[in-house]
């Protein structure tokens, strides 16, 4: 972990211009439905997200990183379809590909690398994260940690706009989550060389339903 720490910070930084600020990670419809209304609720939401879709994304990021590092290009498209299969909501599949495309656009511009040519035009965000990590000389665990960080930092940043909450409480929840994210990144990295079909498939059905409702709203602050 000592090697590449600066590159990992670059990749995980919310200020990387990859359009993440337009998304709430499902927090907006969850707040609207009354399922999150205070700091404790937000913390439960963040933990739930990290443990379910965040962990799945982390495993796919780790797997993409591992595969591209050993030149297994064909395996990347298998990851794409396996991740589609683990994302029941069409809306969330679309969001993941939009964010992936944006991340690809940024990373291939700021740090050109032959790896990026192996991705399709609209790849899933975790797969791009894995490939970008490899392009920066990072390993599968780094890729997993970056996407886990993104999975909680995104909705945490959106919380201040969506609910009445003290920003210090938001970041206290993130601080308490750090050990969990490290643990999840370890576990995700352990799957890096597993068959795509054997990668974790934890689900968050309420998030899928909320995303579909959210898309139908006429007025919303966030794109997802």
């Amino acid at each position: 972990m000592a090697q590449g720490q600066a590159a990992l910070l670059l990749l995980a930084d919310g200020r990387l211009p990859a359009g993440g600020y337009a998304h709430s990670g499902g927090l907006e419809p969850t707040v609207q439905a009354g399922r999150v209304s205070d700091a404790a609720g937000l913390e439960r939401f963040l933990v739930g997200r990290a443990e379910t879709t965040g962990f799945v994304a982390a495993a796919f990021a780790a797997a993409a990183c591992e595969r591209v590092a050993r030149d297994d290009t064909a395996a990347l498209s298998a990851l794409e379809s396996e991740l589609d299969a683990r994302t029941p909501s069409p809306e969330l599949r679309s969001v993941s590909r939009i964010l992936g495309r944006q991340l690809l656009r940024v990373m291939s511009t700021i740090h050109p690398h032959p790896h990026f040519a192996r991705l399709g035009t609209v790849p899933h965000q975790p797969v791009v994260m894995g490939v970008a990590a490899a392009a920066l000389g990072l390993g599968p665990r780094d890729a997993a940690l970056a996407i886990l960080h993104e999975s909680v930092a995104g909705p945490a940043a959106a919380a201040a706009k969506l609910m009445r909450i003290d920003p210090f409480d938001v970041h206290a929840a993130l601080a308490r989550a750090t050990e969990r994210l490290d643990r999840l990144a370890d576990a995700a990295a352990n799957h890096a060389d597993a068959l795509a079909s054997e990668l974790p498939s934890r689900g968050a059905p309420l998030s899928d339903i909320a995303a579909e409702h959210h898309r139908s709203w006429n007025v919303r602050l966030f794109a997802s």
Binding site: R15, P17, A18, G19, Y21, A22, H23, S24, R101, Q102, R105, V106, A158, K161, R220, L221, F222, A223
Partner: peptide, 20 residues
């Protein structure tokens, strides 16, 4: 383009969505 309540960011700091 939906800008996540940050219209200034979308045209200045992080233009990726608009560029695409």
């Amino acid at each position: 383009v939906e800008t996540g309540a940050c219209p200034h960011t979308a045209i200045r700091d992080d233009v990726t969505m608009n560029l695409i």
